[in-house]
Design a protein around this nucleic acid. Sequence first.
RNA 1: GGGUUCGUAGCUCAGUUGGUUAGAGCGUUCGGUUCACAUCCGAGAGGUCGGAGGUUCGAAUCCUCUCGAACCCACCA
Length: 724
Amino acid sequence: MELEKAYNPKEKEGEIYQMWEKGGYFTPKKTHKKPFDKTQGRPFTIIMPPPNANGALHIGHALFVTLQDIMIRYHRMKGDSALWLPGADHAGFETQVVFDKKLEKEGRKKSEIPKEQLLKEMMDFTLSNKQIMENQLRKLGASCDWTRAKFTLDDDIVKVVYSTFEKLKQDGLIYKGNRLVNWCAKHQTTLSDVEIKYEERTDPLYYIKYGPFKLATVRPETKFGDTAIAVNPKDNRYKNYVGAEVEVETILGKAKIKVIADESVDMEFGTGAVKVTPAHDFADYETWQRHKNEIPGPKIVIDKYGKMNELAGPYAGMKILEAREKIVADMIAKGLLDEKEIDKNYKHNVAVCYKCGTVIEPTLMDNQWFVKMTEKPASGGLSLRDLAVEAVKNQEIKFTPQRFEKIFLQWMENLRDWNISRQIPWGIPIPDEKSKLKTQKSKITTEENEPEQVFDTWFSSGQWPFATLQNTQKGDFEYFYPTSVMETGADILFFWVARMVMLGIYITGKAPFKDVYLHGLVRDKDKQKMSKSKGNVVDPLGTVEQHGADALRMALVFANSPGQDIAFSEDKIIAQKRFANKIWNASRFVLQQANTLQTSDVWKSPDIGCLIESKADEEILKALQETSKEVTKDIETFQFHEAAQKIYHFFWHTFCDVYIEQTKSQIANCKSQNEKGNTANILLYVLRESLKLLHPFMPFITEQIYQMLPNKDAKALIIAPWPE
RNA sequence: GGGUUCGUAGCUCAGUUGGUUAGAGCGUUCGGUUCACAUCCGAGAGGUCGGAGGUUCGAAUCCUCUCGAACCCACCA
């Protein structure tokens, strides 16, 4: 058989993938019996983080595919029941943002599209992206079990989500709160605490007169929502006022306001006295909660479009910044604010929407669903937070790199309740008691129709490991759960991993995975973060077309070290493309030797030792064994880059540069045909075992060559036995 | 305010529990080969491992301080 001189990845990759998929190799057999132990093999499960079905895969996806596929292929070859369960995420808010942009581009207004049609369009959009994505995963060589693929909007998954919602409700862990929420005026939805980020801004700090007080504030426009003035109880300056109602002159005329004492007030800041605006500030809201009996409740003065409402009198209808400017000017005019006292260089952090950067308006809403993170369930046991903390502290869940354990636990310390309501159309609708009532008793129609809400997408994906396995094949959950490794990006540790741990243990009683491996971000050439919604993604499929999936995968894993960001550059891929070519040509040489020198079928002999003719033979076999050991250890301990570099080095610089070169003279000097055959057989053996070690990293080229070997020890390399 | 990561060859980065002449890819210099390799092989140049101090027989690796870069968390108006 004549091989091309240069390796051409394009030709065969698709064919090989089909051979694998049609051969059923991706679908594990549940042959091992409990209790699972190392001697007989065991289930090894990875639940694929379902990519957001709102665009094409980016290079970051290629990284996770590579890392997870390495583990899966390794364990499959080792004889474990290796399940890699693929999926796709409808990605609620994320997809909504992408789709809104698409509408905007097309010059269409979301508000003018009937909801039913909008949802249909979004579903079409999502499903077509899902399709594209799945084919891209195939091109990257992902050996996942497509027969078990799940989508977050599958009926059975939604059912699980509803049942979890019900259980939480019955346990008193979910409540509909009249609570302060993070409101994004641009996206017209609330957001959870992890969906906001903080930006440092420089804004003027105003000192406004409040009767006998002077109060420092960045937001004078919220003064219409003030319900009290707070001072520190230890502050002697204001001692006499505490508990009293003071009369103050405001731009809307005279008013009375109560003075309260609260520990949270910093005497050093500003004047040591602070206005309390519970409807629009988290700290103030909490202050009010502590003084509920003394002062009036929150007064909302800003509406959901970010405009002042009727409580703002003449400023009603104005946008926040416009109103602020106007109010400041009017206050100066009325002598309520001294222009000279404005601190124009005041630096502070402002909460903004993580997607659009719009300033988040804390606002009071009464129809929002919250999950209690720190309270014990009615049926007994630990709070959601403590379930997760315990599991991590007990080492039921281990992190790689280890430092994330600390980060995880630290985050758990200061958790607030989780807002799971979103006011966007795209997502799993939150079951609404009122609408249920309506359908049951048609008489109740006076009730104001509540806007439909959907779950935070992380509420559903937070249940992914058990929700999927409970709805694939019968017995899957019992066999594959808890899963082995959760491999995902460090950037969604809080969004996703934390929620999976909490909900997973809460529902199933077991941590959903044993190991968490976190990779860093693949950044673009300028070290900028890539993201679909930003539109700066690099299409990994173009790279596959050009250089082959193996080169891309090897380049990614070569550059990766756990938890560290990596910069993507083409020369790394080209280097690995050369390596693929090296593998190809070494194989070409070995196969040629085998063809011309082979005299017997001695390579079927299990005892490779009796073929040794020279010191070189001995050494290469020793080096191979050493490399196998190291590579195995490195994969087991998640040091994939180390494993990749070791097998790379062995193959190129030990096998090719040293051993193959030696065999040339060795073969020439051999006395008998049999000796020559022996050498050829060692070449074949070392090549075959090397291909096995390389296969998790570079599956296509290794399988292609393996299929041509005369000394195959399995039907396909993908299921060939891993070297001891 | 708290925390984390990074600073190693011209560039991009590895270096797991401290141990002989500190590594890879790309680049670069010289030589060879085109008899598996639109190439490949051999040899070389290039690093006081951000800085200072300490622990140790021995530190890029551990400790303290310090400079520089990035990031995460946090309700200071």
